[in-house]
Amino acid sequence: MVDENPLSHFDEAGNARMVDVGKKNDTRRKATAEGTISMSDQAYSLVRQGNVKKGDVLGVARIAGVMAVKKVDQLIPLCHPLAITGVDIEFSLDDKQKAIHIEATVSITGKTGVEMEALTAVSVAALTIYDMCKAVDKSMEISDIRLLKKSGGKSGLFERSVTE
């Protein structure tokens, strides 16, 4: 059976609504998202060497991403407040592209998924890097923020194919 209204945040009249998840079962859910911030040679060098005047760029960006996960329901109107059970944010430095790759994984045992939380963690971590480095490079570019994988719930497993 195909759901006639796959956009569940709208009622039959087209009005926005928060989905009632009260009857759903708690399941273990996890989502991983990624994104990239590219920058000038100078900004990249300062981050890599830990010499940005504002401090530990990646450490602050990691904390900002974790904090953002806990605020998603306050940022995105129809998201539920969630009792997050885990957040992991990793950075990898790409010397060739002068870019920082960000990957965030968020976990919960609950009635709804954490895709928005993982995407928000990556976004806010990237914005924090931008904020901390903008005195050196205002031309930084945040890109490719996307969901890589999600598991749990009725829809089960989603994994982005390597060709996407």
Score class of each variant (00 low, 15 high):
2 V>P: 08
19 V>K: 13
20 D>P: 12
22 G>H: 07
23 K>M: 13
24 K>I: 06
24 K>D: 05
26 D>Q: 09
26 D>H: 10
28 R>M: 09
28 R>W: 03
29 R>L: 09
34 E>R: 11
34 E>G: 09
35 G>V: 03
36 T>R: 06
37 I>D: 08
39 M>S: 06
45 S>D: 15
46 L>S: 07
48 R>H: 00
49 Q>A: 12
52 V>C: 05
54 K>W: 12
54 K>F: 09
57 V>I: 05
59 G>E: 02
64 A>E: 01
69 V>T: 07
70 K>R: 12
72 V>S: 07
73 D>K: 14
75 L>C: 15
76 I>G: 09
77 P>S: 13
77 P>M: 13
78 L>K: 05
80 H>G: 14
81 P>C: 14
84 I>M: 08
89 I>H: 05
92 S>D: 07
96 K>G: 04
97 Q>M: 09
104 A>G: 01
106 V>S: 07
107 S>Y: 12
109 T>C: 03
114 V>I: 12
122 V>H: 11
123 S>K: 09
124 V>P: 05
125 A>H: 06
125 A>K: 07
128 T>F: 15
128 T>M: 12
129 I>G: 00
129 I>H: 01
133 C>V: 08
143 S>Q: 04
144 D>H: 09
146 R>K: 10
146 R>Q: 12
150 K>I: 08
150 K>V: 06
152 G>H: 07
154 K>G: 10
159 E>C: 04
